[in-house]
Design a binder for these strands. Structure first.
Length: 154
DNA sequence: GCCAACGTTGGC
DNA sequence: GCCAACGTTGGC
C-alpha cells in the first residue's frame, strides 16, 4: 500500500493555488476525461501527495503541494443543469464522473516552471513534458515529486 | 490569438 | 467499426 504521487492541473483563472490556500480544502470537481476519472476513481488514495500545477498560466508551473483527504465519490456538478460541467448523461443512480477532496499542504516557496521541468534531465519521463499531453490528473514518480520540491527550494 | 494534439460525436 | 467533423486543452 505504497503511497502514490500525482500532478493535477488547474487554470489559475478558474481555481488557483491561492484559492486552495484560502479554502484549505476543496472537492476536485469538473474532471470530464475518462482517463483522469479512472485515476481518481481507482488509484487515488487518502494521503497520496499531489503537485498542484497552473496550466494556461504565465508561466505554466507547479505552484503547490496538496494531498488526497477523501477518496472518489460522485461529482455532483454533473447533475446540475446550471453548472458549467453539467453532463446529462451522468445519472445519479450510475454516475459517470467522480471527484476527490484535496487539502493544501503548502504553497511552494518558488514556482517550478514548465520550462525548468523540461530542462531537468531527471524529469524527462514525466507525462507533463511529453508531446501533446492534456491529462489534467496524472501519476508521477516519487523521485519526480521530490525533485520538483528540491527545485522550488533552490 | 494561433494552432497542434487529442478526445468525442455521429453519420454511414 | 470507421472516420470526418467538431470541440477542448494548453503552450507559445
Amino acid at each position: 500500500m505504497g503511497k502514490k504521487y500525482w500532478l493535477i492541473k488547474s487554470e489559475p483563472n478558474a481555481y488557483s493555488i491561492d484559492d486552495l490556500v484560502k479554502d484549505k480544502r476543496t472537492h476536485w470537481d469538473g474532471v470530464r476525461n475518462y482517463q483522469a476519472r479512472n485515476f481518481m476513481r481507482d488509484e487515488m488514495k487518502t494521503g497520496d501527495k499531489i503537485l498542484f500545477y497552473h496550466s494556461n498560466a504565465n508561466p505554466p508551473a507547479v505552484v503547490g503541494v496538496c494531498e488526497v483527504v477523501k477518496e472518489a465519490y460522485p461529482d455532483f456538478t454533473a447533475f446540475d443543469s446550471k453548472d458549467k460541467h453539467y453532463d446529462p448523461k451522468s445519472k445519479k443512480e450510475n454516475p459517470t464522473w467522480m471527484m476527490i477532496d484535496i487539502q493544501i499542504i503548502e504553497k511552494l516557496n518558488r514556482p517550478v516552471t514548465l520550462e525548468e521541468i523540461k530542462q531537468n534531465p531527471k524529469l524527462k519521463n514525466m507525462r507533463l513534458v511529453k508531446r501533446g499531453n492534456r491529462l489534467s490528473v496524472m501519476p508521477i514518480e516519487k523521485t519526480e515529486f521530490n525533485e520538483i520540491l528540491k527545485m522550488s527550494n533552490r
